[in-house]
Every structure is written in C-alpha cells, then in structure tokens.
Nucleic acid binder design. Structure first.
Lengths: 361, 361
DNA sequence: TTTATTCTTGCAAACGCTTACAGAAATGAT
DNA sequence: ATCATTTCTGTAAGCGTTTGCAAGAATAAA
C-alpha cells in the first residue's frame, strides 16, 4: 500500500501538558483513530455511533484502526457532548438476598446486552439516602433509573416526573396508575396457593403476612382471603399472623399458629425465607412436613428446591422482572414520548413436596 | 443590598441550541452559580473543590448561590476536565449470596462516605467478560477497581499494573506478593475450627473443601491438616471430600462421609452454605446435631445463627473486608506513589450449638 | 454534457468543568 | 509612603466527544 493518504489539517493545538489518564497511560482518542485511518475525527465518531452516510470502505478502514489501536470510547466525553451517559442507576435496599440477586441478574444481563453501564446505590433502608441519590443521579450521571422496592417514593417521584426523567419501579405499585412499574400477580399468587391447599382438603390454613406497608403483602393476603371466601371457608383472623419477610418471624409465626387451640393443618408464608422459619418451627414442635403440616411459600428462590422437603411455593419471575424493567426503561430513554406502561408478570404455583392432604380428614 | 455587582464579562457565546439535559430540564451549571454569586466560574469551581485561596465571604456567597440554585456538579464534565471520575468499578461474580451482600455492603458504605459512585459489573462467571469490563473501566470510566474473587486475573492484571491503574483484590491472593489484596486468615480459620473439634475430643473429622482452584479453599484445607498433624492425628484422605461451596455438594459430601465404614464424628464444611447441606444430610440419615455428629462451617453468614441448631462457624469479617479494600483503593487513588499493601484480616471462631463432644468417647 | 439530488466528509462549536497563568488586591516590611 | 509578598480572582485553554452546517463528490435526471 503505497498510496499515502495526506494528513488532513486538523486543529492540532499543542496540548497544555498532555494530562495522563488519571493513571499512567494517556489513552487513545478519537483523534488517534482518525489519524490512523486518514479521516476526520467526525467520521470516526459517525462510525462509532453507527450513523448512516459513511462510505462502507471508509467505515471499514476506521473500524480496522479502532481495533488496531484498541480504542475505547470515553463515556464521559460522549455524555458531555451528546447528552447520553449510557449508564442507568439502580437503587436497591440491600444486596445479598437471592430475591435481589435474581432481579439484579436480569437487570444487568439486559443492560450489558444494550451496552449500558450500571451504577449501583444501596440505601440500606435509610430513607433519606433515596432522595439524595436520586437527585445526583438525574443530574446527568445516568440516563435512567431503576428502583427496586423503593420506600420513599413520595420524596422524589414528583421531581422525576416533572423533569420527565426516565424511570421504572420494580415490584412496587407506584403512587397511581400513571407510574411505570413492573410487578407480578401477587393477588393471583396468593389465591392460587390457597386454592391448592383447599383442594388438597385443608380447611384451616394459617397465613403469615409480609410487611403490611407493602402493597405486594396486602395483595397476597387478599388473594388468600378471596380463595377462602370463594370456597366457602371462614376467614379466621386468628390464622393470620403479621410477619416481616424475615426468617425468625416465620419461626415465631408458626409457633404462634401451632399453639392455637385449633391449629391450622397448613401454613402459607408470604415468602420462602419465612417458610424456612416455619419449617424449622414445625420440626421443632415434633411435627412432620408434609404429613402433619403442609407448608407453602412465595418467591421460589433457589434454596426453595434445596431444602428438605423441597418447598412448594409460588414462583415470581424475578429475573424476568429485571429484564422487563430494563426493556421498558430503554424504550423510554430512546423515545421520551413513549407512553408509560405497567407490566404485570404472572406468578406460577410450583408444586414440590412440602404439601399433602391434611392428616385428620 | 443595593451594592450592584457588575457582571464580569464572561465569554457568553450563544449556545448552539441549549440542549436539554437528555431529559426535559436543562440543568444549572457552574456558570449559573457564578452569575448568581457575582463571581467568575473559576471561583465557583474553587469553592466546590474546596481549594485554598478563596476569600471566606466570597466562598459563602458562592455556597449560598449553590444551595439556592440547587446546583449539583456534573461528574462527567469534571472527570473530563480534571481526570477524576469519582467512581470506582466493582467486579463480582454474582450477587445474591450473603457472602457478596456483606462485602458489597462494606464497600458501598465506605464509598458513599467518600462521595464516590459505584459502577457494578457482574460476570456471572463468564471469564471473558472480566477482561472486557476491565478494559472499559480503566478507559476513564472509573478511578479505581475492586475485584471480588476474580477468576481470570492473568488476562488483565498486567494491563492494570502497566498503566498503574489503582485496584485492590478482595478475598484473592493475587498472582504474587506484589499484588494489593485484602484477605482473611483462611489457614488459621481452618486450623482453629479443627483444633476446637479436636479439643472437644473428636478424632475422626470429615472435611468438605471448597472449589480447589481457589487459594482460600486450599488454605482452609491445609489449616485443617496442620491442626490434625499438630495433635498427632492421622490425615485420612477418605475424610476429605472435594466440594464446590454450594449447598447440594454439602449434602452429597456429608452423605458420602457418613457412609464410610468408619464415619467421622464431626464434619467441617469449608463454608456455611455447604454446612447447611451437611445438616440436612445428617438429619435425613436420622442422626442428631450435635449429639451424634458435630457440624462446623466457615463464613458466618447471617443465616448461620438462624438455623437449628445455630451453627458454630469461623467468622470472616466480610463487611470489613469491603471497607478495608475501599480504604486501600482510595489511598492509592489519592496517592499513586502509595506503596502497595496486603491486608490480612483475622477470622474468628464463633461457637454456637452445632458441636459437642463426640458420642462414643 | 449540464443540472439537480443525494451521499460523504470535514470544520467548528459546544457540552460543563479544572487548572495554569497572570493580573489585581491586600498585607507586611521597611 | 514604597516595595515585596502573599492572597485572591478572572481569563483562556483544554479534556474527548457529538452534531449542525456547508462544501465537495458521486449519482441520477434532464
């Protein structure tokens, strides 16, 4: 190849002091690629961003230069110039539960497929933090926001809406019907599990609620109550124990239910973790699962199939919840006119071995 | 206040089209603050960055303008100009285990205290991803990198070192003694737990290893072996079962150990999750814990104290691991000359109720 | 061939900030 | 009061991109 490409006369002001990249190496820029490929930096930008109006052999030449130089676009600069940061913020309470783990897995899989970065913020249940984070995030750091089980929506949802900043709530109903959310059929899940127990022959079914300030907990409870009603069974308030979604509360709740003068023959816990507590309490009371007491959970976290006996439970498509939320968010980012949507994903009853027909039927 | 401050003649070129902030609102910039406070934007920058040489009443005036306008610095611009992004990257395999949860908690607590942002990357054990992420991250996105249990170090550690990019490994030994790491005393933990069992009177102690390609697993095993040796006990290879750190493997391992012609009287699992599997298997074999078989774990995750009986285990200061890593990383970021350090945090034996003297002594 | 269109490409400005540099103001020493 | 310092503040350049605009190249239409 002897056909020398003449260097375009680009404004090559001598840099003030070639500031190295924060660390040692001063990185290759769009300019370097342009020089290497013998085009202007604007063209390189067009190639990088897959814009139309680039001759295909020019494009190839640039692409080759990019790989040979190992060029990686500088997101900060891109964001500054173009108004896109290619990052989304994720606000969660806490990590470390498989509930979160699965949701986050769905989120970051979809996000990385779309070449987006993830900024993580954990509130550790400090409500004030939510607002602080949100304020920083919408200030250009990210293009959108994903909120898993937010606790303090009132503090910033209005701000988000006013600035028309893209966001999606996960596993939270939102403040009204105009909030974009991804949720599951909690009511139906509660209903299905209860009906299953009823159809097995159970007449007294204990219920352990989650935190009752969460809409999902309320829905599971009403699903349970509706199923009882539909099958002509009384809704004995003694059978409903108010829990918190944590394991010890499952243990305590089961103990309290078992001590009842007329104890239940089945216990429905509003999540798997509490169901594990229930199983322990049942065992400690010298009873067997499922022959003496049936136990059913909610969520279908990975452990549910690993305990003994494997737990019958209502599966929530957690990973899908995350994926769906990302899909909605990106749609909204790419087209702000996009009408806001609410996605409701179905729960499924997973029948394993923790339930059986009641003993004394 | 009638003392009108004359407007400094700042280059106020008419903007090309007042690009709104990606969303609706065009955000307040350093310029707006400058105008409001009647100073130049450089001064505002000095105030924001807490630089010296600003008269205190000027500083106050600027501060007031900042709050009244609700100004938030644009990180991308700051990063572009100054070479600091105030973000660190966190590379993990997976979320959703309480092991990770606790480490991440420590990390993001320290990080947010230092006003740093966290970019999260999960590899889901796809080794290729590690390198891709690392390459992007060091390209200006972040000021430093935290790697929890990396699996593919060889692929990029050299790059990191060459560019002198700040990073710290968590719970990984690194390739040589010159890698900055935060680890725990795995060997000692293995030793302590084993010695405890020996001192209770156990002579045949089963051991379930973790994934043996991890140095921590090897260390726990050698701690176990050393304790046996130091107490004059034989190291029966039949008593060592190679596991994976996952619960089903704990179940399987315990089953296999219990089927031995001369089964152990105690089982030491290399992590708590496997220990839970062990407990299940022991129970399913019709044996009691701790009267028939003692069980001991490693990690001290939250659940360890909640199972029945509460699990005796070797606590790793996971949250502290995270905090320490951040401390080291920020030190390195703020002073690249900082000599690389290796921090070793102590494990502690937590005695609960899953161990007892052996039955047939 | 000439002219009108449609493609390609380069130039320059702008994104919001940091920081070197230099001039102005204030302070201290003489 | 004068000069040397020191403290304070403003100007300008530059960080690495994106993108409107306009000019040149290629193609289609006449």
């Amino acid at each position: 190849m002897s056909k020398k490409l003449e260097q375009p006369t680009q404004t090559l002001k001598t840099p003030r002091g070639r500031r190295p990249n924060g660390n040692g190496l001063s990185s290759t820029t769009i300019m370097d690629v342009a020089r290497e490929a013998g085009v202007s930096y604007a063209t390189v930008s067009r190639v990088v961003n897959n814009k139309e109006y680039v001759k295909s052999d020019t494009r190839e030449r640039v692409l080759k230069a990019i790989t040979s130089l190992g060029y990686v676009v500088n997101q900060q600069a891109r964001s500054l110039a173009g108004g896109r940061s290619y990052a989304v913020g994720l606000l969660v309470r806490d990590l470390g539960s498989s509930y979160m783990g699965e949701i986050v897995r769905g989120i970051d899989e979809s996000l990385s497929a779309a070449q987006y970065n993830l900024m993580l913020y954990t509130t550790h249940r400090r409500k004030i933090k939510e607002r602080i984070y949100v304020n920083n995030l919408i200030q250009g750091m990210t293009d959108g926001l994903l909120l898993v089980l937010p606790e303090n929506l009132e503090a910033y949802l209005e701000t988000l809406d006013q600035t028309n900043f893209p966001y999606v709530l996960i596993d939270h109903q939102g403040l009204d019907e105009r909030t974009p959310v991804v949720i599951t059929t909690n009511w139906q899940g509660g209903y299905d599990a209860t009906r299953y127990l009823i159809e097995l022959g159970h007449r007294r079914i204990g219920f352990l609620t989650g935190m009752m300030d969460m809409r999902s907990s309320q829905d599971r409870l009403s699903g349970y109550q509706a199923a009882l009603r539909d099958h002509g069974l009384p809704a004995d308030p003694q059978l409903v124990y108010e829990g918190t979604y944590y394991q010890p509360e499952g243990y305590a709740g089961a103990q309290s239910l078992l001590r009842l003068p007329e104890p239940p023959t089945a216990i429905f816990a509003s999540n798997d973790v509490m169901a594990f507590g229930v199983m322990e309490a049942v065992r400690d009371a010298g009873l067997r699962i499922p022959s003496d007491i049936s136990v059913i959970g909610f969520d279908d976290i990975a452990q549910a199939s690993q305990v003994a006996p494997p737990l019958t439970t209502v599966a929530q498509p957690l990973e899908q919840l995350g994926r769906e939320a990302v899909r909605m968010l990106l749609a909204r980012i790419n087209n702000p006119e996009q009408p806001i949507a609410r996605t409701i994903l179905p729960t499924t009853l997973i029948i394993r071995q923790s339930c059986d027909v009641p003993r004394n039927v």
